[in-house]
Design a protein around this nucleic acid. Structure first.
Lengths: 259, 259
DNA sequence: GTCTATACGTAGATAGAC
DNA sequence: GTCTATCTACGTATAGAC
């Protein structure tokens, strides 16, 4: 049973090809004909094995996300067990959430950078079925991590934490998707940016490691930034002290334009 | 000439409808037939006025981006003239770049939140013609702002600045796109988050203002975060001092996983 | 279980009447 | 300049042979 074409092989081959093509051309931009041709299977194979194109996309994500989100829960469990009731440090929480994700990029068997790029791009796809699918897949993990952040930053309003979680997800998603797109905006290949000297191509595992190394301080800096001044409410903005890490206080740079 | 259907009206009506539909369903997910039906024009009108569907998308963006990027250059010119050769503060640069963008959300005549959401989503679309179009539209502005940031943060490696610019663009794009998508991830409507008390619907202008108020401190915190420790190079990470704003020094939270 | 062949709708684009 | 009618290619899905 080494090189024999079993159903399992066909299914996996379709999933691998679809993962890459959805990443390269988007969901709507990838036709079933192209998928089945590239996977060297019959046009009908997708509907036979998965039922529909939508179900195929869901399965592409499920086989990766179920692993990822389980690992994220394990990581949080471990941290909380070690802390024995004390709130976690924000840096620990971010490392568990984003570090677990970014480490996928170093391991092709978990999807590698192909899957990370696909994930980053698909999070903004407007199709309703995609959004509801992600909502259900992420619900538990997001809820647990939000709670952890609430506990870690007790003096920061919960709404503010949710906003910043949102911003962090965005920075991460674009950073990943951009490792082969956003040269457009930055005007140069990210390979040039990742290395200190060698400007040529960088393999995926190295890119993933360097991305994590650059991204995590940025996220932590954003999460722990001073709160904005209150605009239309009379309550003051307390400085959020965070355990372990010192919380810097700087001037408020953004003033509300119209009071 | 008040309510007469001129060519100009037809063109603008097509652009307005296409802007909204591309935002709601994506480029591939929006058909010419739906566009022309909603705009109450004939199917052939798009090809007559714009030449093709791709050219229509480009024109949808061009009429907004030409204004936006001109304003961004003006804002930077004004800051640099005022500074008279001295480097700008990072907060000023971010305000000029992101503030100018976010203020579009308050003005429906400039596209409002509809255009901002469309922009946020389209930046990740994989289609080649879209990426090359954005590259040319953004080239000058990005170049000018990169230079301004280099000057403002002379002790931060340029590669690090480009990475962080990249992260900031991502956080902003997702934050915008998410104002009607990412309830998926955060588990609640952003309307709930924006207001202190009133949890119902928030009009676009208010949402845009509150978004800017929350986003700018986050971006500035990320931009001015401590540099990551050098992983595979022996040179130390200097703390970047920035003018005007005090630069906080915190511990490095992220350690390289493999030395 | 897998593939061949095809159904049936819709995509973007265009020729030519008005 | 605008519209009708239509072209050709491609979309997903399925019925039925092997």
């Amino acid at each position: 049973m080494s090189d024999q074409k079993t159903n399992h092989d066909t299914r996996e081959r379709i999933l691998d090809v679809a993962e890459r093509l959805f990443m390269e051309h988007g969901y709507e931009g990838t036709s079933m004909r192209v998928i089945t041709t590239c996977a060297d299977v019959n046009l009908a194979a997708v509907n036979y094995h998965f039922g529909s194109k939508e179900a195929l996309l869901r399965e592409v994500f499920r086989r990766r996300l179920s692993w990822l989100n389980r690992e994220r829960l394990y990581a949080l469990d471990a941290l909380e067990a070690e802390a024995a009731g004390a709130p976690l440090k924000p840096s620990q929480i971010l490392e568990a959430f984003f570090g677990t994700l970014l480490r996928i990029g170093e391991q092709p068997s978990l999807g590698g950078m192909t899957f990370l790029r696909l994930l980053g791009r698909t999070l903004t796809e407007p199709a309703e079925f995609i959004r509801t699918f992600f909502a259900s897949e992420y619900a538990e993990v997001i809820d647990r991590y939000k709670q952890a952040l609430y506990n870690a930053l007790p003096d920061v309003p919960k709404a503010e934490i949710v906003w910043r979680l949102h911003f962090m997800l965005g920075a991460m998603s674009y950073a990943i998707a951009g490792t082969d797109v956003l040269r457009v905006v930055t005007g140069c290949e990210l390979g040039d940016l990742a290395g200190e000297g060698a400007a040529d191509t960088v393999d995926d595992a190295t890119l993933a490691r360097r991305l994590a190394q650059r991204l995590m301080p940025f996220l932590l800096g954003g999460l722990r930034a001073p709160l904005p001044s209150a605009p239309d409410s009379s309550k003051a903005s307390p400085v959020p002290p965070s355990e372990g890490d010192r919380e810097p206080r700087t001037a408020n740079h953004l003033q509300e334009k119209q009071p």
